[in-house]
């Protein structure tokens, strides 16, 4: 179909298991070339959604189109366009890296010569050259993860779906896998699921927050952060007495409330909440300058994705009761 159709188009997707609704009427679109993070606590429905997207299992209701092809009615067209790495990255541990990738390339419909070419390419791309003759079962987890990624890439799919690609890796391995994913974003559309928030912040342009089978938020990471940081508190550490500081900030119209505590050295720690979301930093600086106080810290607390996530998921739990 046409290249203009979005890469992923999900409408009213619902998946019910006996006695449980895993995914509850979600809709979203992912455009070509986006790197989207699928964020949610364990059991939120991330893997279920990904399995439906990769046409491993059907939805109870709703439609999913990948590059314009319906996952239920045209599964082969969909599968040719998707590189999917399932949860826990299952591999044939008795095979050698190169043989495994070649085998997978053949399954994905690549001819003999073409699969050899592509395997050479992905082995290079995923940094597997030194281990390509080794048996997968004897590789470290980080290398196995790369083998999984190489497998997802081997047939040059338009869309790459990775279910928790960095789970169980050590910090070094996580870094290298993330770098790889980021690199993939340049040429492919990528959808990754994770419950690690920093991962989304680092690798994704957009995030979908999923909880209990529903999408709670779908936005660019920066937009989400700015949307939720309107009550941005400002924290300052000043070299002054608590009383002097209290007097200075007591009757200001921009300040909703403030709090002073002792800090290390001769300093006090001042924490201010603004009225109407004004940025209080210039005010604090100006006051400190006028009074001749030394200022050693001045920060406006940003809501991290983590705060937003906790906030959203907790609120929903409260409503559910």
């Amino acid at each position: 179909m046409s290249d203009e159709s979005p890469m992923i188009e999900v409408r009213d997707l619902t998946k019910r298991y006996p006695g449980r609704t895993a995914v509850d009427g979600i809709s979203f679109t992912v455009g070509r070339g986006e790197v989207v993070g699928f964020l949610g606590p364990n059991g939120a429905g991330k893997s279920t959604t990904m399995r439906i997207l990769s046409s491993f299992m059907p939805a109870t209701s709703g439609t999913v189109r990948i590059a314009g092809f319906d996952v239920f009615h045209e599964p082969d067209e969909v599968r040719r366009r998707i590189g999917y790495m399932p949860e826990n990255n299952p591999l044939h541990t008795d095979m050698r890296v190169r043989d495994y990738l070649k085998f997978r390339a053949r399954l994905k419909g690549l001819g003999f010569n073409r699969s050899r070419e592509r395997v050479d390419r992905v082995v290079e791309q995923c940094g597997l050259r030194d281990v390509q003759k080794r048996i997968i079962g004897q590789l470290s987890k980080g290398y196995r993860q790369r083998v999984g990624l190489a497998d997802a890439l081997v047939h040059e799919p338009d869309l790459i779906i990775l279910d928790e690609p960095t789970i169980g890796l050590d910090p070094h391995q996580i870094r290298s896998v993330r770098a790889l994913i980021k690199d993939l974003g340049k040429r492919h559309t990528v959808l990754i699921s994770t419950h690690i928030l920093s991962e989304v912040e680092m690798t994704c342009s957009r995030v979908l927050i999923l909880n209990q089978g529903q999408i709670l938020a779908a936005d660019r990471v920066e937009d989400l952060e700015s949307r939720f940081s309107q009550d941005g508190r400002v924290v300052a550490e000043l070299c002054a007495t608590a009383d002097a500081v209290r007097d200075a900030f007591r009757d200001l119209p921009e300040v909703e409330s403030f709090d002073i505590s002792a800090a290390a050295g001769d300093h006090v720690r001042l924490s201010l909440s603004p009225r109407n979301g004004t940025d209080l930093r210039p005010l604090v600086f100006e006051t400190a300058r006028q009074n001749g106080w030394a200022l050693r810290e001045l920060t406006r607390s940003r809501h991290s994705l983590e705060d937003i996530f906790i906030h959203l998921t907790r609120r929903q739990k409260g409503e559910g009761r």
């Binding site: 399995r51 990769s54 046409s55 491993f56 599964p75 082969d76 599968r79 040719r80 998707i82 999917y84 399932p86 949860e87 826990n88 299952p90 591999l91 044939h92 541990t93 997978r104 399954l107 994905k108 419909g109 497998d151």
Partner: peptide
């Protein structure tokens, strides 16, 4: 049980 079934069945086979 190893999960490779999912990897197999999401290829166009």
């Amino acid at each position: 049980s190893q999960g490779t079934y999912e990897a197999l069945m999401t290829t166009p086979v």
